[in-house]
């Protein structure tokens, strides 16, 4: 039996801000977007399964993804490789997903991260229950949590 758990927008926003501040610096916080944009570029996802089912996804522009990676590695953006970028975005979504899983207080397992150039659209049987449209260094960032519809046959 998979539990149905309400995940609050404010809780997810708080943990995303904490991840950003801790690993990317407090000088340039991630902020709510006034006019949500479409990040495109890269996306990274982790799935939660077992006692609770969900997918957490982070979308970033190409420039945003390179800036995140450069800050995490403390290197120049010009030195960032695609392997570095996949590694860094995977860690970013791993932290978001791990903390979302902890919010759910459920016995479940976190997958290893999946990172791709393009849109890692969640499985069609999942509904978006949280969407954060954010901005960082002027680039759009989106964080979403998808879960099965309430009462869905899983």
């Amino acid at each position: 039996m998979t539990a149905t758990i309400d995940i609050g927008l404010a809780d997810v926003q708080m943990l995303v801000e904490e991840v950003w501040t801790s690993f990317l610096g407090a000088d340039e916080p991630v902020l709510p977007a006034i006019e949500p944009g479409t990040p495109g570029g890269w996306s990274a996802a982790v799935t939660i399964s077992g006692g609770w089912e969900a997918q957490c996804t982070v979308w970033l522009t190409e420039g945003g993804a390179r800036a995140v990676t450069a800050r995490m590695l403390m290197c120049d953006e010009a030195d960032v490789t695609d392997d570095d970028l996949r590694d860094a975005l995977g860690e970013l979504v791993n932290m978001v997903g791990g903390n979302v899983k902890s919010l759910a207080a459920s016995t479940a397992s976190l997958s290893l991260p999946l990172v791709g150039h393009g849109d890692l659209t969640p499985a069609s049987h999942l509904d978006e229950v949280v969407r954060l449209d954010l901005t960082w260094l002027g680039d759009p960032v989106r964080v979403s949590v998808h879960t099965p519809p309430e009462g869905a046959d899983r």
Binding site: V19, M95, G97, G98, N99, S102, T107
Partner: peptide, 26 residues
């Protein structure tokens, strides 16, 4: 680790871990 739930802390301690630092950390 990115997961710092009470259940995981208990599992870590039971297995013999001295501590669990949750990401993001300071």
């Amino acid at each position: 680790t990115s997961e710092g739930s009470p259940e995981m802390r208990a599992q870590a301690e039971a297995a013999g871990a001295s501590f669990l630092i949750a990401k993001p950390f300071t």
